[in-house]
Simulated scan of single mutants.
Amino acid sequence: MTAPQDRPHVRTEVDGDVWRITLDRPETGNALTPALAAELAAALATRPDRTRAVLLLGNGPRFCVGGDVRSFAGADDPGAFVGQLAHDWHQVIRAMLYCPVPVVAGVQGAVAGAGVGLVGACDLVVCARTTRIRPAYAALGFSPDGGTSWALARALGAPRALDLMLTNGVLTAAEAHLTGLVARLVEDEDLPGTAVALAHEVAAGPIRAMVRTRALVRRAATRTLEEQLDDEARLIAESAADPEGREGVRAFVEKRQPDFRNAR
C-alpha cells in the first residue's frame, strides 16, 4: 500500500468537456505543501485543450485547511520556507485567475488560510451548507497570503474583512453566500452532483465570452465607468467577431439552441 506522503497530492481526470482537479491529501485536510502547490500548478498547466472548464474539488471532509503548519514548525528558516511557499502558491492563484477557461469549485467542510484565497480565485463556487471559512492567520501570528486579503476585501468590504481576519473569526457558508464570496449554497449531500453539473453547464457555453466577462467583472471595482465602457465596447466587438458569437447569433435567428462546443 502506498504511504500517504508518497502518493500524488493532486488527481486529475477528463470528464467529457471538464478537466477535473481534485486535491487529494484528505488525511491532512488537503493542507498546502510545496508538493501540493507544484502539483496543482502542473495540473492547471496541463489541462487538455479539448476541455472547456476546470472543476476543482477537495477529497475528504475538508476542502483545504490552508498551510501545513507542522512543516512551518520544522523549517530551519521559517521565514524563507513560508515565503517560498507563498511565492509558489501565488503562481497557482495567478494560473486560476487567468485560466483560459472558466473555473468552477465545489467546497465543503473547512476552508482556511490559503484555501480562502484559492476559493476567491475561482469563477463559480458551490459551497456545502455546513462549510466553515476561517482565515486563521491571526492564530499563527501571520499576515494573509494566497490572495486571501483580496478575496475577502472584495466580497465583504474592508471593515468586515478586517473584523474577520483580525479577530480570527469564522464565516458560515450562509454568510459567505450572502456576501458573495461563494456563488451557490447547497445541502452537503448535493454538493458533488451540483458542482459537476454546473461545470458541465459552463463547459457547454461560450467559454471565450465567459472569460471576457470574468475580466470585466474583476476590473470593474478598480476602474471608472468611462474605462469600463471602453473595455466593454472592445470586448463585445471581439465576442461578436468570434465564432462563438457568430454561432450564438445564427442560433437565435434560426430559433435553435447554439452549439458553442463546435464553434471554431
Rank of each mutant, 00 (worst) to 15 (best):
L36M: 07
V211F: 00
L23T: 10
A241F: 11
F260R: 09
A220C: 01
L198F: 02
V82K: 03
E238I: 11
S71T: 03
V217T: 12
L162A: 14
T28Q: 01
L171W: 05
C99S: 14
P26F: 10
D6S: 07
L225E: 14
L181R: 07
D77M: 10
P61T: 13
L118R: 00
A75F: 12
D163M: 12
A3T: 15
A153S: 14
F81G: 04
V10M: 02
E232M: 15
M210K: 10
T28S: 11
V103A: 01
D77Y: 07
L178F: 08
V125D: 05
V196C: 04
D231N: 03
V116L: 04
P243V: 08
P100Q: 06
T12F: 02
G248Q: 08
R223N: 00
M1V: 02
V103S: 00
T179F: 11
A73D: 05
R250H: 06
A220Y: 08
P78N: 05
V253T: 11
A41T: 11
A95T: 03
A86L: 12
V82R: 03
S239F: 15
A233E: 14
E247S: 09
G157F: 02
E201V: 15
N30H: 11
L23Y: 06
R7L: 08
A42S: 14
L32G: 00
D76A: 15
A221V: 13
A95Q: 08
V54Q: 03
A75V: 12
E189Y: 09
D76N: 08
V186G: 13
T22F: 02
G117Y: 06
P34I: 15
A151Y: 01
E39W: 09
G193D: 04
Q5L: 11
A263F: 02
A195D: 04
P192I: 02
R208N: 09
T131L: 06
A240H: 03
R214C: 02
H87C: 11
T172Y: 06
I133G: 02
R208W: 07
A105M: 05
F81S: 04
T222I: 13
T179C: 10
A80I: 11
L166I: 08
A195V: 13
D190T: 08
L152C: 12
D17I: 01
V170T: 11
G67V: 14
A220Q: 10
R129A: 15
P144C: 07
P102Y: 02
D15R: 14
F72G: 10
G146W: 04
P26I: 06
G106C: 05
R70P: 00
A38C: 04
A220H: 13
L118S: 04
V107F: 00
V107K: 04
P8H: 13
L235I: 05
R218K: 11
A35W: 04
E244Y: 10
A45T: 01
D259H: 10
G146Q: 08
D77K: 08
R20K: 09
N262D: 03
H9A: 14
D68H: 13
R264N: 07
T213W: 08
N168T: 10
T22M: 09
R214P: 03
D123S: 00
R134C: 08
L44A: 05
V217Q: 00
T194H: 14
R214T: 03
V170Y: 05
R134V: 03
G16V: 13
A42P: 04
A233L: 15
Q5R: 10
A155P: 08
V82A: 15
A215M: 14
V126R: 07
R184D: 09
P8C: 06
F81L: 11
R132W: 05
V54T: 07
F252G: 00
D145T: 12
